[in-house]
Design a protein around this nucleic acid. Sequence first.
DNA 1: ATCGTTATCGGGAACGTTCCCGGTTCGGTG
DNA 2: CACCGAACCGGGAACGTTCCCGATAACGAT
Lengths: 340, 340
Amino acid sequence: MDTITIKDIARALNLSTSTVSRALRDSYEINPETKRLVMEYAEKMHYRPNPIALSLKENRSQSIGVIVPEIANNYFSQAINGIEAAAYDRGYHVVIFQSQESYEREVEKVEHLAARRVDGLLMSLSSNTTDIEHLKSLHARGMPLVFFDRIPAEIDTHKVVTDNASGAFKATEHLLATGRRRIAHITSQPGLSITKERLHGYRMALEQYGLPFDENLVKYCSYTQEEVKYNLDTLFGLASPPDAFLTATDRFALGYYAALKKRLIRIPEDIAFVGFSNLNVAELLNPAMSTVVQPAFQMGHTAAGLLLDLVEKKPKQPVYATVQLPAELFVRESSALKQG
Amino acid sequence: MDTITIKDIARALNLSTSTVSRALRDSYEINPETKRLVMEYAEKMHYRPNPIALSLKENRSQSIGVIVPEIANNYFSQAINGIEAAAYDRGYHVVIFQSQESYEREVEKVEHLAARRVDGLLMSLSSNTTDIEHLKSLHARGMPLVFFDRIPAEIDTHKVVTDNASGAFKATEHLLATGRRRIAHITSQPGLSITKERLHGYRMALEQYGLPFDENLVKYCSYTQEEVKYNLDTLFGLASPPDAFLTATDRFALGYYAALKKRLIRIPEDIAFVGFSNLNVAELLNPAMSTVVQPAFQMGHTAAGLLLDLVEKKPKQPVYATVQLPAELFVRESSALKQG
DNA sequence: ATCGTTATCGGGAACGTTCCCGGTTCGGTG
DNA sequence: CACCGAACCGGGAACGTTCCCGATAACGAT
């Protein structure tokens, strides 16, 4: 890219760089005629101010970093959509990384992004992250930081989440209302916030219906294929096997739906199913899948908004808040009323 | 972010910035003892070189821009996944924008990204883009540019596409082999490369089977909901209505699948269906959807690789190529053999 | 004693921009 | 006629880094 600078304009018009700079910013102390000359020449030569030079001077990059477990996931791609919209509206760029559910990669990317001098960081933790020292120290050094969806308890900053407890409660309650009594809960790593909250909602619903909580029905998963088989084997090997599934993420919803179907288990006759999922085709599945949907776009949008407020020091002394957005339960065939 | 610079180190150790700079780059002309001092102090103070200062000096940003119609789309999010992987491996950042299928937004984002001094640009055209002057001029001014999936004919540069013609041919041939004769083709705007190529494959298959091409069966769509209804009305209003659908993109596949089911049209009994789609749950749909799958990750990965070769001037005089990756046809229930 | 060599280091320009200080001209006022 | 204040413009530092020139000292070699 051969690019023209303010100096080139100055030289061409026999002016100083100061004058050109001021002319371009429409300063009052520049002769209108001079302004016109500069403006016209700049326009003609396709002049665009170099944001890098500005960044160096102002010590900001006008960009925010985003680290998510994976981009090619309905929930996160929708969230990124919201982030991009909010950031663009306020003149910021979005730089994206994925941790791929790996702690080591997450640390690496956080470090990289910080070195890159992004103005702020938007994060959703990898499922294998338990130690968040890398983020703590970054935050302590003054990097504006906002978490969404998968948040840590130990860092005090803005957080945006869905009301996971309520979502899980509604789903569990619904399954109970359809006559199921043994609800398996397939969920993420126990350390994650979303895991705890959803488990809490699940237990509350059981309690309210006077049913016992059975640890054997809860499976904390990572994301491997063998694991699915193993978990299903043990679940169906129980003396009192499950008659319903509540899965906690998009990937579990799809993975277990597929695995159940492969085993020729009938949904909803043998097993009722509700998945936390932002899959936009839940309606079209066989059978149509009941889902707890998170407002992904909205979450990304508000998280980015909060981050940019921090970046721009909108409130001088920020009072950190945890914004909770409602989850919505869509009842479909997969959790139809139990027959007989 | 309170950040430490090379100057701070120099001052603290009573050295010049030159010496510190060289010590940090492990230059041979610095006393090992001095190096050790500098390195240790830098480590202790968490020093990280400021990439923005480097960018200013070297006139490059170590980042590439990506403009896609929408992020929250299976195909594109998978492609971005590939782009991110390739870019990160080579030390580049990925800055993402979406045109939202709007020509005006596309122009705006292209302009924005260029002003932002990205080192190169990766594009998939919006469906409403017919005039590509904004990209032509950018390319003429020396911006490395690589297109993927939706490419323009009029710009000579690297392009990465799926073998759309072959994909459409295979799908059409398959539908013909199952006994269908009136295949509706739901596709994008006529200007797009993917539209033409897929249409070509579709026609070739018809021709090979000695069937006439009927313009009435081809619908060039944008992405509105009313349009779906209108197109279905006219298609089923034909004297000889379709007995199969071949849809050209992810969104059309889902949109028309849903609409057909809503009309209680039986798939595959009344209508056979094959969709170009990267939906990862095609298998789980009701009925399981036959799909032509594009190697999205691979496309993003190679496109990014080609772009970075251009950026880094790997071949001094690049010979622009159009890389064609194979599309794969997955036959499922939705295009089962016609009964009777 | 002079000189080239080696080992170490510093000064300062440059990247593109803004902005603080200055400077000059000129018309007007006392 | 001296002085003042607009009106208009230029010089140069600064942001953080690299790199081209030097510079200095010590030390053999001539």
